[in-house]
Amino acid sequence: MIRWGLFIGTTSGIVLGLYMWFIEKITGDKVYTLLMNVDFIPWFGSIDWPVLMEWFFHMIISWVIGLVYAWLFMYRLKPAPRNQWMAASLLTAPAAFTYVPLTLLALKETPAVTDVSAIIFWLIGHVLYAVTLKKSYDRFK
């Protein structure tokens, strides 16, 4: 289960991170910066983290989500496609709705709370994350 969950979390985390990075590079909307930002966390915020550490923090969260997803289908839910989509959506939704709080808490420059294009990119990225969770499950089994 651990290997399975880490695979699911890794693929989903990489897809989301790369999507946000490309969107930021192409449009200038700082959605990747927002995704990787930890400057508002006490103690963490006072450190200028290298890019690889920011990726590591992002991946830790993705690994936890991947492990929960794998655990659900090994021990709690029948792995029917409907259950897989529902679990992927429910596990991703809280992260998708962090746009406003993360933007308000951020100390560095991130998109405005009212930046409609950045919000849309953020939501699309998290839908992509949910799709990747489900599809990664299919690839691993």
Rank of each mutant, 00 (worst) to 15 (best):
F73N: 06
M74K: 15
S46E: 11
R76S: 13
W122G: 07
N83I: 10
S46Y: 13
V68Y: 11
P81M: 11
R139L: 14
T110P: 01
I41R: 12
T11D: 05
L34H: 05
G125A: 01
S136Y: 01
S136M: 00
R139S: 14
G17Q: 02
D115T: 00
W21Q: 08
Y137C: 05
F57W: 07
V113F: 13
L105A: 01
G17C: 00
K141C: 04
A95G: 06
D115H: 08
T98D: 03
K30R: 04
I61K: 15
V113S: 15
F22R: 01
T10L: 12
R3V: 09
K141Q: 08
A80E: 13
E109L: 03
T92W: 04
W21H: 04
W63N: 12
S62N: 10
E109T: 07
R3G: 13
W4I: 05
A87S: 05
T114Y: 06
G9K: 02
W63Q: 04
L35C: 08
D138C: 14
S62T: 01
W71K: 10
V100M: 13
A130F: 05
M59A: 03
F97P: 01
A88N: 04
L67Q: 07
R82S: 14
Y32K: 01
Q84I: 15
I14F: 06
